[in-house]
Design a protein around this nucleic acid. Sequence first.
DNA 1: GTTCCTGCAAAATTTTTGCATCAGT
DNA 2: ACTGATGCAAAAATTTTGCAGGAAC
Lengths: 157, 157
Amino acid sequence: MRRVTTARERADWARHAEASISAAGLRAGGARKAVVDLLARQECCLSAQEIRDALAAEPGPTPGMASVYRALDTLADLHLVHRVDLGGQVARFEPARADGEHHHHAVCRECGGVTPIGDDALEQALHGMADRLSFEVDAHDITLHGRCAACAGRGER
Amino acid sequence: MRRVTTARERADWARHAEASISAAGLRAGGARKAVVDLLARQECCLSAQEIRDALAAEPGPTPGMASVYRALDTLADLHLVHRVDLGGQVARFEPARADGEHHHHAVCRECGGVTPIGDDALEQALHGMADRLSFEVDAHDITLHGRCAACAGRGER
DNA sequence: GTTCCTGCAAAATTTTTGCATCAGT
DNA sequence: ACTGATGCAAAAATTTTGCAGGAAC
């Protein structure tokens, strides 16, 4: 499958995020910076808890959950992160690229793993549909549910 | 736009649901029956709270939230209802047609309203993509975010 | 020196579970 | 009667908010 994000693009996002935060007149505190840094290294989405846990595993002070949520909230307001609801009761967050390039998600019903999915034909069909609606579309999310290749391989059926 | 569900199809679903429940060796209690009856009358998805409120407004005893959740859980296990996460922190539920015919959702960022969306070209693109993946897809969800016609009309920009 | 950011704790929300009781088959 | 269904209350899990202290500009 097409590669969804390159290391270069992730580094660009981190710079863009810091610049946007600063341009919005916001300051560079430790917790929010840690969240931006961590997200910049991700290939796909993380839950607030996963973010907090990952930061706890790193050297340096561990931010509180509230700060993680506040950072994500600020970033979402600036359209720097995209909130993704994959079912279940945890929200997940991932970097939103400035050029609008994005991917969608496939969730395994057995292992719960999330695989990023990108497909141009699908995006085209989606835009075609958006044009035919009286609804003004700013964003869309697609979630696939099923079994990932690893789980399907582990057991027939 | 294409009509998403007819009255006839909803009545069929109610009958199918009762039959499936019975076939699974489950009994016909009042709370679950009330939930099935209510869902059968819906054009689109409802949250657990909305279901409970709607049942409270009807004559007869009002089931507890726990029973509503348990009913929805059972119905989801039997693939009679589909759980839909539209963002925010409430899950929504809607009848799942036996023939797999389904629709998706557009959520207005201003009024929070949900509009059902159906599009055959999109479904085809989705199936085409599913065939190209190593992921075994059983179901998919698509959510559009933006402004509904009513909110777009109320204020320019 | 402001004003924003952070952390902790408390609150609010949504969903799940335990348990005694009631009801369907 | 047996076993599942229900209701209430308590528990869990996730996210939000209040407030005091600390940090960035």
